[in-house]
Design a protein around this nucleic acid. Structure first.
Ligand SMILES: Nc1ncnc2c1ncn2[C@H]1C[C@H](O)[C@@H](COP(=O)(O)OP(=O)(O)OP(=O)(O)O)O1
Ligand SMILES: [Mg+2]
Length: 575
DNA sequence: CGCAGATTGAC
RNA sequence: AUUGUCAAUCUGCG
């Protein structure tokens, strides 16, 4: 208690299940913020001191163990030592052990496993032992905020608070207008990026970070492969290491300047006219240039800059093209059509999801509709969600046609002797009350149905501010506002209606939600509109009248049915 | 508001 | 067993 859990395990209850996670996360978050700020201020002695503090922090250890041994998908996969920590006592042991050995531990070799890549080749993973993953996570919390304060604003891969959609949107806004000047594109990727990073160069870049000898230890730890034994490593960082993504970003820091990108002196956020613009996502990058010649110059400059860092372009994935011919980036295709730049799902991505869906339906033959929905709905929702910020309507419609075929074939296969109208009647209908669509595949037992890609609302993605970092204490307000604006799209209007009606149903006069009274405090309102959202999705309450106009009312859906005799459909309340 | 599980996508 | 980082989303429970 006294030292806010920063100094040692003795401060805390030894029970993993009683750990005050909120407090420890807050400790780590605050310390990250201080490292970020000290870096921005250029106060290097302070940066190093705070990093040492982070490397001694018990909160950091706890948070890191939870991430690695509890939250991550690979928690049950051991490294070469065969160790995992899947129970609460084992996790507490792991925390105490990693904390005790924070200075003395020796990194172990990673386990080599090969997984298939999208292009059919193999990806060599390097899986560290669980305790090394914890140590790496601890070091990342010390190292990352320093570099977050320095990274280029247009680098998006592996960085907290930044997404593929941000990178795509930046390309869109810099090349969308009819008057856009940068029409030649260098689209480049590096060969085996993680595996080839030069150790000495990287360690020099990291400088006198207090955990540098440990970082060095992980880089040099070597590989153990079943049947082949131990191999030392002389380059690269393991694909599977917790800090590896951060290390790649550090190794590639400065790439933008090397490409010849120049910023306005008055506003360092803006790139100079005449200068190319470079957007990077991990080892994948796009340079928007004024001419083909400029794109070629950028490429030669970059190749020279990359070489001493151990990195080379992957010529198979590197090209120089005109925007009118289009290029693929992060699963999107960018292409200019009569003066406008369109970002749509790439051909390869569409093909992949098509094959995925076909394969799933093949595997689902002979099951019931509920099983189909349980398997397919998350795929549709997840995929549509990723592309909802782009010009995806046409692709979505095409995928719905594909899905219709698959469901129809699936239904026919289930009932080979029934007539077609029977099959259609049995499995297809107007299952979604908000849509006038009779061709929705659904389960007549539960009323559950298969959503269509095309129902996904196309929403413009909100771009992150160029230099924004969640580690920056000065920008805490920006991130809070961003979260609140992004989250409750549906709740804004609903909350307004709820408050106006004092939480009651105008038809029966009862409270709309299962609560004994109208909420009084702001905190109670907060909880209210959370339950309201659930109630709406479950159609316990509905909107009476035009859902968009001001005279709309929230009512119990059974009240609505009773008064209108089922005449009026529940108005679409979105979803 | 707190805890937990799951899926999708990029690399 | 297939690891890691990041983002988005959904669903449960108290
Ligand atoms: N599934 C993954 N697990 C861990 N790290 C990954 C994974 N996918 C990609 N990465 C990391 C490691 C890669 O070196 C880096 C760049 O990805 P990518 O360009 O697809 O492969 P690559 O650069 O290693 O080989 P290639 O020569 O085919 O480009 O991102
Ligand atoms: Mg690559």
């Amino acid at each position: 208690m006294a030292a806010l859990g920063v100094n040692g395990p003795e401060d805390d209850s030894p029970n993993w299940d009683n750990v005050a996670w909120r407090r420890h996360e807050e400790n780590v978050r605050r310390l990250r913020g201080r490292i970020f700020k000290a870096t921005k201020d250029g106060d290097w002695p302070q940066v190093r001191n705070l990093q040492k503090l982070m490397l001694r922090s018990w909160s950091n250890t706890l948070v890191s163990v939870r991430q690695v041994a509890q939250h991550n998908a690979g928690r049950a996969t051991a490294g070469i030592d065969g160790q995992v920590a899947l129970t609460s006592p084992a996790r507490m042991d792991l925390a105490e052990q990693t904390h005790r050995t924070a200075q003395s531990f020796m990194p172990l070799a990673v386990k080599r496993v090969y997984i298939p890549k999208a292009n059919g080749k193999q990806r060599p993973l390097g899986i560290p032992v669980i305790s090394d993953r914890v140590h790496q996570a601890r070091h990342r919390n010390a190292l990352e905020p320093e570099w977050e304060a320095r990274f280029e604003p247009k680098s998006y891969g592996f960085r907290p608070g930044r997404s593929c959609q941000d990178a795509i949107q930046v390309i869109h806004v810099t090349a969308c207008g009819a008057t856009a000047q940068r029409l030649w594109v260098l689209d480049a990727d590096l060969t085996a990026a993680f595996d080839k990073i030069d150790h000495d160069r990287l360690l020099a870049t990291i400088g006198n970070f207090p955990g540098r000898t440990k970082i060095r230890g992980w880089l040099k730890a070597g590989v153990f492969e079943k049947g082949k034994g131990f191999t030392p490593t002389d380059a690269g960082t393991p694909q599977g290491g917790v800090i590896s993504p951060l290390l790649l970003n550090i190794a590639l820091h400065g790439l933008e300047e090397a490409a010849g990108v120049r910023k306005e002196r008055s506003d360092p956020q803006r790139t100079k006219r005449g200068s190319p613009s470079l957007i990077r996502y991990a080892d994948d990058m796009v340079a928007l240039c004024y001419s083909k010649q400029q794109a070629e110059d950028v490429k030669t400059r970059l190749a020279a800059w990359l070489a001493p860092r151990g990195l080379t372009f992957n010529e198979d994935k590197t090209r120089i093209v005109h925007l009118d011919d289009g290029f693929d980036f992060l699963g999107f295709t960018a292409r200019r059509r009569n003066g406008k730049l369109l970002m749509k799902p790439s051909k390869a991505a569409v093909k992949r999801v098509r094959h995925r869906l076909s394969a799933e339906f093949r595997a689902l033959r002979g099951t019931n509709p509920a099983t189909v929905l349980a398997k397919i709905n998350p795929i549709v929702r997840g995929w549509a969600n990723y592309y909802r910020g782009a010009a995806s309507s046409i692709v979505f419609a095409a995928l719905d046609v594909h899905l219709w075929r698959l469901t129809y074939k699936w239904a026919c296969h289930s009932h080979p002797h029934k007539p077609r109208p029977w099959i259609v009647n049995r499995y297809f209908g107007r299952y979604n009350p908000d849509r006038q669509d009779r061709w929705v595949f659904g389960d007549r037992n539960s009323g559950a149905y298969l959503p269509k890609f095309a129902w996904t609302k196309i929403v413009r993605h909100r771009l992150v501010r160029g230099n924004a970092s969640p580690d920056d204490p000065a920008q805490a307000g920006y991130w809070a506002e961003r979260r609140s604006k992004n989250q409750p799209l549906l709740d804004r209007r609903t909350l307004h209606l709820l408050r106006r009606q004092h939480g009651t149903c105008p038809i029966c006069g009862e409270l709309l939600l299962h609560a004994d009274r109208e909420p009084q405090s702001p905190r109670e309102w907060e909880q209210w509109h959370r339950t309201a959202r659930k109630a709406i999705t479950r159609q316990i309450i509905a909107v009476y009248g035009n859902g968009l106009s001001d005279d709309a009312r929230l009512v119990h859906s059974f009240c609505l049915r009773r008064t209108t005799g089922g005449q009026q459909e529940p108005a679409p309340l979105n979803s």
